[in-house]
Design a protein around this nucleic acid. Sequence first.
DNA 1: GTAAGCAAGATTGCATACGACCATTACGGA
DNA 2: TCCGTAATGGTCGTATGCAATCTTGCTTAC
Lengths: 246, 246
Amino acid sequence: MAERPPSAGDDAVVGPAGPAGPAGPLLPGSSKDRRIAPQALASAIRDRVIRGQYPPGHRLTEDDLAEQYGVSRIPVREALRLLEGEGFVRVIPYTGTFVAELTAQDAADLLEIRGVLEPLAAARAAETRTNVHLDGLREILSEGYTALAKEDLELLAELNTRFHTVLTEASGNVTLNQIIGTLRHKITWVYSVELPRRAADSWAEHRLIINALERGDADSARALMVAHVRSAQAAYRLRPALPGAS
Amino acid sequence: MAERPPSAGDDAVVGPAGPAGPAGPLLPGSSKDRRIAPQALASAIRDRVIRGQYPPGHRLTEDDLAEQYGVSRIPVREALRLLEGEGFVRVIPYTGTFVAELTAQDAADLLEIRGVLEPLAAARAAETRTNVHLDGLREILSEGYTALAKEDLELLAELNTRFHTVLTEASGNVTLNQIIGTLRHKITWVYSVELPRRAADSWAEHRLIINALERGDADSARALMVAHVRSAQAAYRLRPALPGAS
DNA sequence: GTAAGCAAGATTGCATACGACCATTACGGA
DNA sequence: TCCGTAATGGTCGTATGCAATCTTGCTTAC
């Protein structure tokens, strides 16, 4: 499992100058020993985009970002290019980098693509999953039901993401995993999910999918995932504009 | 059609020092007025990778590439990062950039993913295609049959690529178009295609798909593309190692 | 009052220079 | 002879500085 050195950045450990005071220098403590990789920068910026702190259309200046994160423009540029490749920002030469503005059609397209890729991932996972993956999925399933009982919606959303993440990883298809990962990021950006009554059904479906994986039944896994994605689709609500709340 | 400024680079206009003499400077003619964008560099390098001039595992040194193309390391780095995002090279920090070495499984995965995305593109294209797209496809179809009669295999391969490219563009799904474009590049890299007897059937299928698009019949377009991709799959032969022929 | 032209500011694109890290090799000891 | 260790070369990572380009506001003419 130690294949790609840095690989897909999941959580950002880097933050700009604290929201407390705009006066002091950045990076509290020993300000030199902490080296920031462009990928960490990209994760941090992506995170702000997803949270709406950088609203669509917002201009991201290399100089500003460099100063905020305490690095030079070079790693910032690299981070912005990464995000451009993922479709989160749009770079116009000699002009600037802007947070992408997705249309409703773009957003619908994301769900549509994921709708055919996740079933494929499920089918492949049924054939290639290891017991480690299976145990991980069962663990998540168990926690999911617990969270369901507690009505912890935030945890439920996170567990749902983890379930699908582990499942696509279990497919063993690296390319597929990368594509779906980026799609997932963008979907959580433009959509909010209505969990209320749907959650119980959703986790029941998760259980069925795990059973199919356990049996190595690729066709069932695919069909179940098709149904799961389809019924989940109804729960997605397009975010209006996302004001930049902190 | 003037949306993305540079967008997906298709053909590279840039070449390294001519194969003639390694002595003189690069970029013949007025050596200064020609500015090279990182995307053009990426296309040029990608092209060499696909042609096998940079074999899998080959080390790409930033300094060497910079000197060959007559630019500094900065745009070269950016180009390499683009190719890394597309999966053509693999960057190891402080060590080097290497041409990716895809396994047979990786290669099979590419076809599998394309196998579910192209039918989706066909279905969407049936709903959103313009007459311009339709005319373009008919034109390609016509040329295809001409090339078929002349047994011009190279032209046939190019026309096949153009057919599928126009079709995915007609889907109107930008994200889908990008993903399939990269997949296509990688597939032409690792596979060679056996056209001999299969070509006639293939273009008959193309005709049926165009008819479905014309009728706006999304379900038929999807089903026909599923069949088309499936039967085409048998024509793909994995390239052994691709010696670095010029 | 409106539109065209122009100049100043701002921002990105690229080149150069230096520092950090890895790989390899030479050397000394067991 | 083999292995552990230190030194050396090479490559990438980042910082700084300058050139190219776009945007914006003002001036000027109609």
